[in-house]
Every structure is written in C-alpha cells, then in structure tokens.
Computed example of a mutant assay.
Amino acid sequence: MKIALILSVAIASSLPAVAMANEKLAQDKQCFGCHTTKPDGAAPSFQKISQHWKGNKDAEAKLVAIIRQGSAATAGPHWNKATMPDQAERPLVSEAEARQIAKWVLGQ
C-alpha cells in the first residue's frame, strides 16, 4: 500500500516537468509562431485543437502527421483558409518529437 502511494506521488510530481519539456519542445520547433495555448492567434489555439480532436481514437497519429507534414497531411487547409507550413519552412520535427508534441497538445 505504501509503495503504491509513493509511486503515485512520484509519477504525479513528474507530470508537470514532462509537460513543461513538451511545451519547450513545441517552442523550439516554432509551433508558437502561429499557435498559442489558449486564445487563438494566427492559428487555432492548442486548447481548441485538443477540443477538436477529443474522443477521436486516431487523433494522436493524425496530429503527428500534421505536425510533420503541415497542411499537406490533410490535403490542404484544415482550419478555415489557413495552411500549416511543412518542414521546408520550419525546423525538422522527428516522429518521436511530433508524438511528444501531439500528446502535449491533446492534453490541453
């Protein structure tokens, strides 16, 4: 019982650090150039994106593709007329990095 409690506390206390690291990764990959966490900017907020994908079992995989390929992953604009640039116009994002960012976005 004590071990389970200790593990629960350890895991819970590490979650904010992981979230901060993933937010930093999103900053490093220039996601914040167009997106913000809550209000919409030049692009939809991460919170709005999270709400849009809520309940979709393929959300993480689709976001990973969009993060890596931009609007080309969805064959064109996916939020009104705005297009998300591909990796020719911004820093390269690996599959693993895109997965981290997608999980962070979905947790907003």
Rank of each mutant, 00 (worst) to 15 (best):
A88F: 09
V64S: 01
K57R: 10
T83Y: 01
I67N: 10
W104M: 06
L106Y: 08
V93M: 07
Q108A: 11
H78A: 11
P39Q: 12
I11T: 05
K29W: 06
N56D: 15
S8V: 06
E60D: 01
P44C: 14
W79I: 02
M20S: 13
D40W: 05
A12M: 15
L63Y: 15
R68V: 11
W79C: 01
T37L: 12
Q47T: 08
K24Y: 10
H78G: 08
E60Q: 15
S94K: 14
Q30G: 00
A59N: 10
T37W: 08
A88N: 07
N56K: 14
E60M: 00
G107Y: 02
S71W: 06
A42Q: 12
A42C: 00
V64M: 05
A72G: 12
Q30C: 04
Q47C: 01
S14A: 12
A10P: 01
A21T: 11
L25V: 04
G33P: 00
I101A: 03
W104K: 04
K81F: 12
K103H: 09
R68M: 15
Q69A: 15
E89G: 10
C31R: 04
L5Y: 08
G76T: 04
I11F: 09
A75P: 00
A42V: 09
A72C: 04
N56F: 11
A98L: 13
A21L: 13
L7I: 03
I67M: 15
I49P: 02
L92P: 01
A65I: 00
G41K: 12
A12G: 15
A59P: 02
S50P: 01
L25M: 10
K29E: 03
G76S: 03
K54G: 00
P77W: 08
Q51S: 10
A65S: 14
P77H: 13
Q108Y: 07
S14M: 13
G107K: 09
Q108L: 05
A43W: 04
A73I: 04
F46Y: 07
P16Q: 15
W104Y: 07
T37S: 04
S94H: 14
A42S: 08
I67H: 13
I6F: 07
A82E: 01
Q87F: 02
L63Q: 15
E97P: 01
H52R: 05
L63K: 15
A43T: 02
H35Q: 07
A26D: 01
Q51F: 05
S50V: 03
I66A: 11
K2F: 11
K29M: 04
A72E: 12
E60L: 03
Q30H: 08
T83H: 06
A19L: 07
E89L: 11
W104V: 00
V93R: 01
S94P: 05
K24V: 05
N22T: 06
N80W: 05
F32T: 02
S50T: 01
M84D: 06
I66D: 03
Q69L: 13
Q69M: 13
Q51Y: 04
G70S: 12
W79K: 06
A26M: 06
N80V: 06
R99K: 15
N56V: 14
A98S: 12
T37C: 00
N22F: 07
A12Y: 12
P91W: 04
A75F: 10
H78Q: 12
H78W: 14
Q87N: 14
M20C: 09
R68A: 02
A88Q: 10
A12T: 14
S45R: 05
P85A: 15
